[in-house]
Design a protein around this nucleic acid. Structure first.
Lengths: 249, 249
DNA sequence: CACAAGTGTGAGCACTGCTCTTGACAGTGC
DNA sequence: GCACTGTCAAGAGCAGTGCTCACACTTGTG
């Protein structure tokens, strides 16, 4: 491992090329039409050779799924961080996150479909995709926790009430983790107030985010609205309002 | 045309059998895996024979799409009508509609994916599907109009504000149509108040409906919540609250 | 240098959607 | 009753797919 052998370097390079080609094909034709043979053709290589680098077509899809989760996660993290650093209130941070999500989806529609659209039949996402899928959740949870702390989460305006036990342990833990990770000195105030209702509020935000993007991207608003970005913003603001997160104009 | 010839009857019967078989295959394997040859095998017939009754695989898909839109439309219409007749307030009617939508989606996941999931690549939905797709919209619009009339739409609590011109003419007209169709004697009050903000509110409701169903059905809440129905309800209530539609408990 | 591991090739299997030719049948006019 | 016309199912065939395998070749290592 000191100096990589020529073979190892060639392997890494070819793997990268393979992923590039696959990504291009995905962007051009969509996941369902992603053909291993076509990728091999693009690379000027026999189709069977690809199997030296990727276990199967589904394995290749898994790699692309992870890439997609990471891409959207990075975009949303960056947008949220930037907004937060600019001094935006949690409501505005949420809006910025959602806009980044939408922008990424519009730029990479097939990647979006791959992760948030219809699951590929007969394909079960392996567990190694989970940590990448969680990144967007962390952004949302952190924003809601922020709102919880600074008072812009007006739960009195919200209608989210759920019986105890609706939320899985792991989901509650994620919130606690994020809370302790982002805790600043001297504000242990809000921690014990983070409960199931808050987690469900995050679910609602995420559902609306995915729904608004899906509806627009898959053409269900075709011929219904001209300013789709405006409709998207309004939908996000409505969702925030619904869980008691005020968004100043 | 007076009495159908034996040939016509046989054709109608076979077409019905074909659709049954295709629906079964769709329910079992999903749209992407829907194979015309497999359907032909199920019917004990040569694959080429199927093309006498259906123009292509996409044509078959179109028939199934229309069936799906009609099924979900019927389910939601029935649920909304029943709730309304039972004297439920618009908020509760919305909840009932959403629950019917979710129930249908859970019962027919592949049909849901077919119409609200990733579009089949290279497949452009023909315009004859539009009237069937609109039915669910009519239900939502009618409910919001109802709320508009009886005062349960508290726009002062809502944050939905959009600049003029975000909504397409056709969408506004649909609202006007539904309003005049459901008008009772003596309440011409709300009509002029039906504007772009209200249409956008309907967009938001629909987005959340599709989003909440998608997220649950496609497994993005796996391991996150135990009572998925409760989370769904909470999401719907939050969406309603967000547009100013109060939902009494 | 020799052996083992890694790598690309092309043939092959079973499958797909779709087209086209072939041959069989039903309904209709003479 | 016979011939014509339109409908129909069947089967071969084309081009494509995922994937496996035996083979030849290159590379790294003992």
């Amino acid at each position: 491992m000191g100096h990589p052998t020529a073979r190892e370097r060639a392997r890494a390079e070819f793997t990268a090329d393979l992923l590039d080609a696959a990504r291009a094909r995905l962007a051009a034709d969509g996941a369902a039409a992603l053909s291993l043979r076509a990728v091999a053709r693009d690379l000027g290589v026999a189709s069977s050779a690809v199997y030296r680098y990727v276990p199967s077509r589904d394995g290749l899809l898994t790699l692309l799924i992870i890439e997609a989760y990471d891409a959207v996660g990075t975009a949303c993290e960056a947008a949220a961080a930037q907004a937060r650093e600019a001094g935006a209130a949690p409501g505005q941070v949420w809006l910025a996150t959602g806009r980044a999500f939408r922008a990424w989806a519009l730029a990479h529609p097939h990647s979006f479909s791959l992760v948030y659209g219809t699951p590929v039949p007969g394909y079960a996402a392996p567990t190694d995709t989970v940590p990448h899928a969680v990144r967007i959740w962390v952004v949302i949870v952190a924003t809601v926790i922020d709102a919880h702390r600074d008072g812009s989460l007006r739960t009195d305006r919200a209608m989210v009430t759920v019986p105890t036990g609706t939320v899985e342990r792991a989901a509650l833990d994620l919130g606690a983790q994020v809370a302790s990770a982002t805790a600043r000195a001297g504000d242990a105030t809000g921690e014990q107030a983070w409960g199931e209702a808050e987690v469900v509020a995050c679910f609602a935000l995420f559902s609306t985010l995915v729904g608004a993007t899906t509806v627009e991207l898959f053409g269900h608003l075709r011929g219904a609205a001209t300013d789709l970005a405006g409709v998207f913003d309004a939908t996000l603001v409505a969702a925030a309002t619904g869980i008691g997160l005020v968004v100043e104009p």
